[in-house]
Each structure stands twice: as structure tokens, then as C-alpha cells.
Design a protein around this nucleic acid. Structure first.
Length: 602
RNA sequence: GGGCCCGUGGCGCAGUCUGGAUAGCGCGACUGCCUCCUAAGUAGUAGGUCGAGGGUUCGAAUCCCUCCGGGCCCGCCA
């Protein structure tokens, strides 16, 4: 709605100045406190052209402005023109939100999008670094869905890694039975075996033998490895579900190798983009020549196929991306993996299964650590070389900085994740929240409330900071229940809902004179569509967090000083109820995108 | 050697893309506010050379250049 107001005002300025409407629009911003509602810096922009100083230019323009029902007043403040919006605008803004309901601010872009996340190796539980990836991926997927994209949440499972082979070696030779939660068990097993491998050449060779069998496929060891990997992923998904995450499809590396790799590599070879080296350091390899085309690298080539005929990680990923963009004829078959509590079935690539409509994306978003920036750029570059210019543009590496502990970085091999897994974080959060839950809440509901508060606090803590920011992990900050935190937003939402429960609300509201705090609230609400569109375009959930926090802040101030149910006049009560309902609508939608749950009470 | 990211009150951040009015917020510290819709709230006080220096501009935290500090990357690992 604030956009509509800006367009109206741009039109007024355009008529007054005969300047292009888009230029006038560009001069507008949502004003800060004390400078009206919408401010124009058109004075600066036209000063030179009009051969006067900005202050005079603003004065000239202001005098020629025609009235509009949404504009109550115009004030020239030095070089700025400040517009005060009318009660009619505010009333209409509130009604618009109520009419649109859940659809308010939603787009209809209709793009096919793949969001790849979190792609955690299937040999350990999620630690807080993986959690950051998963939450970012989930929130970005939600944001794009809100924009109207058709989103495939895709999880890449590296079931052919040495880590899985080593864990399997431990399973076969040491313990033979999974105890407790599979991801934790496998994680410990891996630490144990990795330690042995360092000292014991026989173990090392044995584990490497397992890896070879896995890569060859079609044997009992490979089946077993796949089974173990899936057990681990299922356990990791328990963690995911606890945090409210879900996936649509899991793509296993073993299936990439079996189903699409051959076609992909032939395509690359035939395209001429990949060449076979007959001399030099990369003799016998298939490489992409990058000399002079990519900055920041010493070696001019990137090897996709090694001289022994096997594929590098980048080689596999390259072909995976040809598939993601629908550039291969072949594809996968899928079978059901898990029924998810939040959003239906997750499918996994498999030998049998059925064909399904995954892939063929217009836009690919990879949520991957910043340390993989270079191989990701290689893929983007090769797409471009292959003539897939549009696809190269629509290949996005959403890089995030890692989260680590004050004392050390996480290492799967060394087991530094022990005591700092996403599971333990949720448990600790719940414990802390339980201490704060009001005694007035019945015993049976306290656990649920504490869980929702904890998950909300953690999700918000991760999502409120920009992904490129390093995150040195401190329990107290992530589990904060006050101030700029998840529970603050939940609390505002709960208070709003309680008011709505206690009062009869009829959407028909007559003419009304808004006070300053009411205007602030409505103005904030009216910016929601603009904020969401911007956040989706940039794929930055923290812009949503920021907005929702300041919205809740404005609501809290409104709440403190403006009684709703006990409002003095009937019109006042009606309009305030409408505002509270609009606030509840916007905040609930926004929290939904962030995946922050709202408890019934707190 | 080259490339990318970060540097904003004691601590943690937003704002930088798209330059504008006294640089916002949270934590921590201090002082107030619950006979009134949930005080996980709210009102206020103290605390800042926006890493440094130059440049562009009527105007720079924001754009350009140089430098400093921290991190990541430049593999026939993934």
C-alpha cells in the first residue's frame, strides 16, 4: 500500500514539474520520524536544471502541487518536500490488509526454482554450522514461495564419500549395531575410525577398499553403504523436523553417477567446452580452460575428469547442474523417503521408483558455505561457455559464513561437534524457555510452549544476521528470550491474538481520525509487500527479520498506550481492532516465512 | 603472488547494492512504569573519529583509490 501512495505522490510531482514520473518516484522515500510520511528530495534533483538552489527548487515544486485524497498536507522543509498521508489512506491501508488476508503481499512470479540445502554429509549429526545452512535454505525457499515461485527443496546426499566408507568400516568391523540416534552414533563411529586410520595402515586400506566397492556399485557393500547413509539422513531429518524444516527431494551422488553422469560427460566433451589434455601437468585429464576468464586463480584449468577416468567433485556437480537446468535427456527415478510432519512426503532418488517432475529449473539457488565460492563460480562459468547464458545468470551461490565456537572450529573428523549439535541446542533452549514459561499456563501445554519459544528463538537468532557475517556461537545470544529475539515477536503476536479472541470484530469501519501511534503502526504494516519483494529478490531473510522486529516494536508501543477493548469510543475500538487484526495477519505471515512458530500463550 | 568477504558505542548487529535531514537497534549499566487487552513488555539516561587516509559530490557509513586488521579461497580433496 505504501507503494501505491508513493506512486500517487510521484504522479502529483510529475504533473507539477513535467518531469518523468519514474524520476519523481525515485525522489521519494518513506520518511523517518518527524519528517512527514513520504519525503521527496526532488529539490536536490532539479536544482541544477531549474538554475536555483535546492531549497528554492523544492519551494517552487511544492507550490504547484495539486491536492489528492491520500495527501493531507505538504510541507517544505529546506530542500525536502514532506507529504502527510490522510486518514483516508490509513483506513484504506488497513482494509486492504484485512481483505487480502493471507495473500497480502504475496506475488505470482511462477518461476521453477531449486533451492539446494543443506546437503550435510551423512556421517554425523547436524552441528550449529549445518543448522545455519538449513535454516537459511528453508527461509529462502519460503521467501521465494511467497513471491510465487514453484520451489523444489533439494538435498544433495554425498553417499559415496570416504567418511561414509570409514563409518561403514566401523559398523562392519567394530560395533555391528547402531545404538541411539543414528547420526550421533555414526558421528562417533567416524571419529573412532578416522583416528584408527591415521595410525593403522591396514584399517586405512580396508576402508579404501569399501569406498572402491561403493563407487563400483551393484554389490552388497554398496547396498550396505547406501542403507547406512540413509539411516543417518533419517536421523538428521528428525533434527530438521524438530526445527520445522522439510525437503521435497533428496538426490544421492550414487544415483547421479548411475543415471546422468555418462550423458552429462558426453555432452560436455561434445560441446568443446571441455578438452582432453595430451601434455602438461593435466595430461590425460578432461579440463575446462579458464585461463584469463576467471579471476583469482593461479591454475588456468579446472579438471573435471581425472587421468584415471574418475570424476572430480566439480565434475559431478557440473553435470548435476546441467540436470537441474533441464539440459539432460536422462533423469532420476524416485521413491518415498519419509513422511514429514510439516509438509508431505520427501522423495529420494533410487534405482527402482518412478519418474517425477523434479529439475528443469529456471533458477537454481545453492546454499553452500563461502569457502566453496570458487568451484561454484566454475560451474556458473562453464554454463556460460556452453551457451547457457540465461542459466548462468540464474545460477546463484548463496554463500554464508560459517558458525563456530569461541574455542575452535568444528571438525567432523576430530569430533569437536560433540556437545554442540543442533539437537543439544534445541534441548538447552527448551530447558531455558521452560524456566520462563508463566505459571498460569497449564502443565500439559508448558512443554509445547517451551519448545516453540526455543525453536523460535534459535531460528530467529540465525536468520536475523546477514549470511556473509561470521557467527561465533554463544549460547546466551542465540537463546536470548528478550529484546531483538524470536520470543519478542512471538509475544507481540500472542498479545494481538488475545485481544482478537476477547472482542467481537466486525470488519466494517467508518471514517476515523488516526493518532500518531496508530499511524505509525499502519504505515509500518503497509510496507510489508515492498519488504517481502525486496527480500525475496535479494534472497536475504534477515531483511524480513529486521522488518518484523521493528513492526512488533511499533505494535508494542501502540499496545502500551492505546487500549483496544476498553477504548473510549466505539469507532475507536472498531478501528483499533481492525489494526490489531491487520498486524496479526502481517506478523503471522512474516513469521511463517521465517519458520518461527507462534505459541497459543506464553 | 592473485581473488572474495568482514571491520559501525563495552559486546552483538541493521543501514552500504539504489549517496541525502540530528548514524538506528538489541545485550550489558543506571532511573522510572503492572487496581487497566499477558511486564518475554514499555518510558528515559549514559555510551559513536561508521578501521585509517585521500578523492568524487551541493551532500559520503554508503561511490572511487591507497593502506591497516581479521577470515576464506586459488587441489587429479569434497
Amino acid at each position: 500500500m505504501i507503494l501505491n501512495a508513493k506512486h500517487q505522490i510521484a504522479s502529483l510531482i510529475s504533473k507539477a514539474t513535467s518531469e518523468d514520473e519514474s524520476l519523481c518516484f525515485k525522489s521519494l522515500e518513506v520518511a523517518q520520524e518527524g519528517h512527514g510520511d513520504i519525503a521527496s528530495k526532488i529539490g536536490f534533483m532539479l536544482a541544477k536544471k531549474m538554475r536555483m538552489r535546492p531549497v528554492q527548487a523544492a519551494q517552487e515544486v511544492a507550490e504547484k502541487l495539486k491536492p489528492h485524497e491520500w495527501v493531507k498536507g505538504v510541507e517544505v522543509a529546506g530542500p525536502y518536500i514532506n507529504f502527510m498521508l490522510s486518514d483516508e489512506f490509513y483506513a484504506e491501508a488497513v482494509m486492504r490488509i484485512l481483505q487480502d488476508g493471507k495473500e497480502y503481499g504475496r506475488g505470482n512470479s511462477g518461476k521453477r526454482v531449486i533451492v539446494e540445502s543443506p546437503s550435510v554429509n551423512p556421517n554425523k549429526p547436524w552441528h550449529i554450522g549445518h543448522l545455519r545452512n538449513a535454516l537459511l535454505g528453508d527461509a529462502v525457499a519460503n521467501l521465494l514461495q511467497f513471491r510465487g515461485d514453484h520451489v523444489q527443496r533439494m538435498d544433495y546426499i554425498d553417499d559415496l564419500g570416504l567418511q561414509v566408507a570409514q563409518s561403514l568400516w566401523g559398523y562392519l568391523n567394530l560395533d555391528k549395531e547402531i545404538e541411539g540416534k543414528a547420526d550421533h552414533w555414526i558421528g562417533h563411529e567416524y571419529v573412532k575410525v578416522a583416528g584408527m586410520v591415521e595410525k593403522d595402515e591396514v584399517v586405512k586400506k580396508s576402508a579404501e577398499g569399501i569406498l572402491r566397492e561403493m563407487e563400483n556399485g551393484g554389490n552388497e557393500t554398496a547396498e550396505k553403504a547406501r542403507w547406512l547413509a540413509e539411516e543417518c539422513v533419517k536421523a538428521q531429518y528428525e533434527t530438521a523436523f524438530n526445527y520445522g524444516n522439510y525437503e521435497n527431494v533428496l538426490i544421492c551422488e550414487s544415483d547421479i553417477m548411475r543415471e546422468i553422469f555418462g550423458e552429462g560427460i558426453e555432452k560436455l566433451k561434445a560441446s568443446g567446452a571441455v578438452t582432453h589434455e595430451t601434455s602438461g601437468p593435466s595430461k590425460g585429464c578432461w579440463v575446462v580452460k579458464l585461463s584469463g576468464k576467471m579471476r583469482g586463480m593461479t591454475e588456468p584449468d579446472k579438471i573435471l575428469i581425472r587421468s584415471n577416468g574418475t570424476a572430480t567433485y566439480t565434475g559431478k556437480d557440473m553435470i548435476f547442474h546441467l540436470w537441474k537446468f533441464g539440459k539432460l535427456k536422462g533423469g532420476f527415478r524416485y521413491s518415498k523417503f519419509l513422511e514429514q510432519p510439516t509438509d508431505g512426503t520427501a522423495y529420494i532418488t533410487s534405482k527402482k521408483g518412478k519418474a517425477m517432475d523434479f529439475g528443469k529449473a529456471d533458477l537454481v539457488v545453492n546454499v553452500i558455505g563461502v569457502e566453496q565460492k570458487y568451484p561454484q563460480e566454475v560451474i556458473k562459468h562453464v554454463l556460460d561457455v556452453l551457451g547457457y547464458t540465461k542459466e548462468a545468470e540464474n545460477f546463484v551461490h548463496l554463500a554464508y559464513e560459517h558458525a563456530w565456537l569461541p574455542e575452535a572450529k568444528f571438525s567432523g573428523r576430530k569430533g569437536t561437534w560433540v556437545g554442540h549439535t543442533a539437537d543439544e541446542l534445541a534441548a538447552e533452549g527448551k530447558k531455558r524457555a521452560l524456566e520462563k514459561v508463566k505459571t498460569g499456563i497449564p502443565e500439559g501445554e508448558r512443554e509445547t510452549v517451551a519448545e516453540e519459544v526455543a525453536i523460535g528463538a534459535i531460528r530467529y537468532a540465525f536468520l536475523k544476521i546477514a549470511p556473509e557475517k561470521k557467527l561465533v556461537f554463544k549460547w546466551d545470544e542465540v537463546l536470548s528470550l528478550e529484546g531483538d529475539s524470536g520470543p519478542y515477536l512471538q509475544y507481540a503476536c500472542v498479545r494481538a491474538r488475545r485481544i482478537l479472541e476477547k472482542a467481537d470484530f466486525n470488519e466494517k469501519v467508518g471514517a476515523y481520525g488516526f493518532n500518531a501511534e496508530e499511524k505509525r503502526l499502519v504505515k509500518e504494516l503497509a510496507q510489508f509487500p515492498m519488504i517481502m519483494k525486496n527480500a525475496a529478490g535479494k534472497m536475504k531473510p534477515h531483511l524480513v527479520s529486521d522488518y518484523l522486529y521493528s513492526l512488533s516494536n511499533v505494535f508494542s508501543k501502540f499496545y502500551t498506550n492505546n487500549p483496544v477493548i476498553k477504548a473510549e469510543k466505539e469507532e475507536e475500538k472498531k478501528m483499533r481492532l481492525a489494526m490489531v487484526s491487520a498486524f496479526n495477519n502481517v506478523l503471522s505471515t512474516g513469521l511463517g516465512v521465517l519458520g518461527v512458530p507462534v505459541p497459543d500463550k506464553m
